[in-house]
Computed example of a mutant assay.
Amino acid sequence: MGERMSETETPVQITREGPVVRLTLNRPQRRNAMNNAMGAALDAALDALEADHDSRVVVLSGAGGHFCAGLDLGEVASGGTEAERLAAQQARNHRTGQRFLRLSRLPQVVVAAVQGSAHAGGLGWVCSADIAIATADARFCAPEVRRGLVPAQILPWLTRRMGRSAATRMVLRGDVIDATEAGRLGLVHQVVDDAAGLDAAVGTVLADLRQGAPMALAETKALIAALGPLSPDGYAEAGAQAFAKCAAGPEAREGIAAFQQKRPPAWAG
Rank of each mutant, 00 (worst) to 15 (best):
F100K: 01
V145H: 13
L206E: 15
Q241L: 11
M34S: 08
A222W: 04
G255C: 11
A257R: 14
S104Y: 01
R253T: 12
G269M: 06
Q13I: 14
A41K: 08
L209K: 07
G183E: 01
M162F: 02
G79Q: 14
Q261V: 04
V76R: 08
K245A: 13
D175T: 03
G203W: 14
A167C: 04
A266I: 09
R160V: 02
A118F: 02
H66C: 02
A258G: 03
T180E: 10
P265C: 10
A152Q: 03
M34W: 12
V192R: 06
R22N: 09
Q13V: 15
V145N: 09
E9W: 04
Q115D: 05
S117N: 04
C141A: 07
T24N: 04
C127A: 10
A242I: 01
V110P: 08
Y235P: 02
D193Y: 00
L149H: 07
V191Y: 00
P229A: 13
N32Q: 08
G80L: 06
A236Y: 01
L227K: 00
T96P: 00
M162T: 01
A83M: 07
V126F: 02
G39F: 09
R210V: 07
L25M: 05
M170K: 00
S78D: 15
L223D: 14
E144C: 07
E254P: 09
G234Y: 09
S128C: 15
G18H: 06
M215S: 14
A218D: 08
F100P: 03
V58A: 10
L106R: 12
A40C: 05
G65A: 08
D52L: 04
H53E: 15
E7N: 09
T96Q: 06
E144Q: 15
E75Q: 11
V111S: 05
L230T: 09
S78G: 11
G203T: 14
A44Y: 03
A195E: 13
A142E: 11
G186N: 01
A88W: 08
G197F: 12
M1D: 04
P11E: 08
V109R: 15
E9P: 05
L25F: 10
Q115I: 00
A142V: 13
T220C: 03
R30N: 09
L23V: 08
C127I: 02
T15L: 10
L209I: 13
G249L: 03
G183T: 00
N93R: 03
K221T: 06
S104C: 01
L187C: 05
G269T: 09
V109F: 12
A248L: 08
V205E: 14
V21F: 05
V59E: 15
V12K: 05
I133H: 07
A40Y: 07
G228N: 05
V191C: 02
A213C: 06
V192A: 03
G39D: 14
Q260P: 02
G228A: 06
A138K: 01
P214I: 08
A40I: 02
F243Y: 15
T81Q: 02
E7R: 09
R169D: 14
V20S: 10
L106K: 10
M1P: 11
A166M: 02
G70V: 06
A207D: 15
P232K: 00
E17S: 14
S104D: 04
L227N: 09
V57C: 13
I133S: 06
A152W: 00
R85S: 02
H119E: 07
S128I: 05
D178C: 04
K221C: 07
P229C: 12
T15D: 15
V109N: 06
A33D: 12
S61I: 02
G148H: 05
R184A: 11
V188W: 00
R169F: 04
